[in-house]
């Protein structure tokens, strides 16, 4: 089985080497003549203001939390999906289906909860939402 992982591993190593070679080559070959305007990040022609390290909106965090929970749900569903066809062939179609549906239903309750409580809305009306304290 290791041989199956050899190709992706080789791709990763070649990719890293290729990237390092390109970066190293341009360090060696390119003329360096930096000045302030050249080093400025291109922001649609506008001069950028402030630091790029800003505080993100907290909404991202709530969405990411919900995302992680449902990602774990997928991780549980996936192995069951691989054997599902064999369980149908063994004539245990309704058992497998109902187990999956119970599993999905319980987490669907969670989805309904965050949906109804409006935690999934991108812009939520809360007082002074731009300050993160």
């Amino acid at each position: 089985m290791y041989a199956d992982y050899g190709v992706p591993l080789a791709l990763v190593i070649i990719g890293l080497l290729f990237m390092a070679a390109m970066m190293g080559l341009q360090k060696l070959l390119a003329p360096t003549n930096p000045f302030r305007r050249k080093l400025m990040p291109y922001e649609c022609g506008e001069p950028p203001t402030g630091s790029a390290w800003i505080n993100f909106n907290v909404r991202f965090y709530l969405i990411a939390l919900v995302f992680v929970i449902f990602e774990v749900e997928v991780a549980f569903i996936y192995p069951v999906a691989t054997v599902y066809l064999d369980w149908i062939r063994r004539g245990q179609r309704w058992f497998a289906l109902s187990e999956l549906l119970i599993f999905l239903f319980i987490l669907f309750v969670g989805l309904v909860y965050v949906w109804v409580k409006r935690d999934l809305e991108w812009i939520k009306r809360i007082p002074d939402q731009d300050s993160v304290n």
Binding site: L65, I69, F76, E99, I106, Y113
Partner: peptide, 13 residues
């Protein structure tokens, strides 16, 4: 397997 779903629900909420 089913209890894991409940645990995930509790974690989510």
């Amino acid at each position: 397997f089913e209890v894991a779903s409940l645990v995930l629900l509790a974690a989510l909420i």
